[in-house]
Amino acid sequence: MSLPRHNYDPRRVCINPFPNISLGKHRRTVGIYLAGGLFALANWTFLDAAILSAHAHPPFDDPQLPPPVHVTFVDWIPGICSLLGMIIVNLIDKDRVRGEDGMGDAAAVWRARLVLFIGFALMAGGLAGSVTVLILKYIIHHYQEQYTYYGYANVSQNVALMLSAIVLWISQSSGGEYEYSLSI
């Protein structure tokens, strides 16, 4: 498939441009609040699991046995990777990644895209790590549902952090509320 010559831009990396989502007058504000809500939900979910793990009681049928599993530092690592990836992704100047607005230096555009890739790779690695921890630590050992919740909370934290980063990226890429288009 080839693009018509009038739509061709040699600076473009992908055939499809960045999404242009219109949510009305306050689209940027709505996106930023939605991303913040997802971020809060992500961390709240995992902190809930960590607090439940710290205050876990032995099973009622045998009070001499301690709880079989707790949230440890291994459970925190995927969330830390996703959080670092989210910070890296949202620190990048969007115009630099596109190569627009006089930032046509090919090396700067390449570096910005590399850093963006590293940020998304950290988030994907965090998600993959949380799924791995869920399977290897919680599912294989067939723990009760109250203990497998710790692993599910870890995975949901990483999914929500990734969605939060994507929503924030898209909302910050859209035009601002106070932009004016003047033409003579």
Rank of each mutant, 00 (worst) to 15 (best):
Y180G: 14
A128N: 10
V74D: 15
Q172L: 07
G125A: 13
V89R: 07
V89A: 15
L84R: 10
D93P: 06
L168N: 02
A128V: 14
I92D: 04
G85Y: 00
Q144V: 05
V159C: 04
V109W: 01
A107I: 05
Y8M: 10
P68L: 03
E177I: 01
D75M: 09
T29Y: 00
L84N: 04
P19V: 08
H141R: 14
G175I: 02
S82W: 00
P67I: 04
P78L: 01
I139R: 14
S173A: 06
A56L: 02
D75N: 15
S53P: 12
K137P: 05
L134Q: 10
A108K: 14
P58K: 06
F120R: 05
Q146P: 03
Y143S: 11
A112S: 14
S22H: 09
A42C: 06
N158K: 02
L38W: 00
F46G: 11
L168H: 01
K137R: 15
G176T: 03
G151T: 08
A165I: 01
G79V: 05
S82H: 02
D75F: 01
Y180P: 06
D105W: 03
E177L: 02
L65P: 11
G24W: 00
F18C: 10
V131Y: 07
D61H: 12
Y143R: 12
L52A: 11
G79P: 05
K94L: 06
D62G: 07
Y152I: 04
P17V: 05
D105Q: 04
A153L: 05
A107C: 07
A153T: 09
G31C: 03
I135L: 08
S2M: 10
L3A: 13
M86L: 14
M86P: 04
N20I: 06
I184V: 13
Y143L: 12
I184H: 07
F120S: 12
P4D: 12
Y178S: 15
A124D: 02
F60L: 13
Y178W: 02
R96T: 11
G126M: 04
G99Q: 03
W76S: 15
I77S: 06
G175E: 00
